[in-house]
Simulated scan of single mutants.
Amino acid sequence: MPVVTASTRQHSHDDAPDTAAAFARLAGLPDGPRRQALRDEIVGLWLPMAHRVASRYRGRGERVEDLNQVAALGLVKAVNRYDPSLGNAFESYAVPTITGEIKRHFRDHMWTLHVPRRVQDLRNRVRAALKELSQTTPGRRPTVTELAAHTRLSEDDVRTGLEALDCFVALSLDAELPGSEDGYGLADTLGESDAGYDLVVDREAVRPALRTLSERDRTILYLRFFRGMTQSDIARQLGISQMHVSRLISNCCTALREQVRSDVT
């Protein structure tokens, strides 16, 4: 003999059964097999409603089966926490609970990139505005200005929300760019560190210190580091020994290093 039956009386939706009496009995049962069986029966009656709530989130990158499972989990939590003595209809309590569970699922599991909660909220508002305005602007995408006016957000916030629309799934760096005919991929658009910038910084930092050296010392450093000459070649050109050239280079580099450090500090 079934413990719960779905009433033919219509509620706010056709998938909202009359389980008030069942919840009253559930509240009076102690933990055990009878309470578990009654709870499972109530959950089964309300599953169509949970699936209806889940259907609102279709087309957002998650499978329908997974959405229904998350909604069912939210429904179980709602049944466990519902207190009929407060006088509120179960549906009015369950829908926000199920919706919150689905939103948490998207927030915690569906974003490939970590996106702050504020940006997620902007994305949701912009996404809803795009859907609403697309009915009044057929044939074209709503502009940033139109979205800002509709959402009462700044245009910068709208642009942030638009950028976040694609953050659920990250493309592979090997993915070919739209419109590319020669296999030009995302990896080809990435920049890399340019050692030339560091070289410019180093040269500018050492320039004042070089002016403090004698003309001969500057000539030796120029021939060694800019002309690529060996110490032996420099020694022959200047008419001094190779050992002397080595000591001069070492002393000059030490003096320049100390000078640059003192200028920085």
Rank of each mutant, 00 (worst) to 15 (best):
D198T: 13
R141H: 14
L113G: 00
G183A: 13
A129L: 01
D174L: 09
L171D: 10
V115K: 04
Y93S: 09
Y197S: 04
G179Q: 04
A164Q: 08
A187I: 13
E155W: 04
E163K: 11
D194I: 06
T99Q: 12
L162Y: 01
S154M: 03
L165I: 05
R127G: 03
F168A: 00
A175C: 13
E181W: 09
M110H: 01
A175S: 15
A128S: 09
A175M: 09
D157I: 02
A128C: 01
G191F: 09
L173N: 13
G191V: 06
S180C: 10
A170M: 12
V169P: 00
T136N: 06
V144Y: 07
L122T: 01
D166M: 07
L122H: 03
T160D: 07
A149M: 09
T189S: 11
E101D: 05
A94P: 01
V169E: 08
A195L: 10
M110P: 00
L186P: 00
G100W: 06
Y184S: 02
K131S: 04
T143S: 15
D156F: 10
P96N: 11
L147T: 07
L165V: 08
A148Q: 12
V119N: 02
G191T: 08
R125H: 06
H109P: 00
L133D: 11
D166H: 07
G179P: 02
R104V: 11
G139C: 02
H105W: 12
R159S: 02
P138C: 07
E181F: 12
K131L: 03
G196K: 08
R123F: 02
F106G: 02
L173T: 09
I102W: 11
A195V: 13
T112L: 00
D188W: 09
R152W: 03
R127K: 10
A94S: 10
G161R: 11
E163Q: 12
R118D: 08
P142V: 11
D188K: 04
D174C: 05
H109F: 14
E155H: 00
L177D: 01
V169H: 14
G191K: 00
L130T: 07
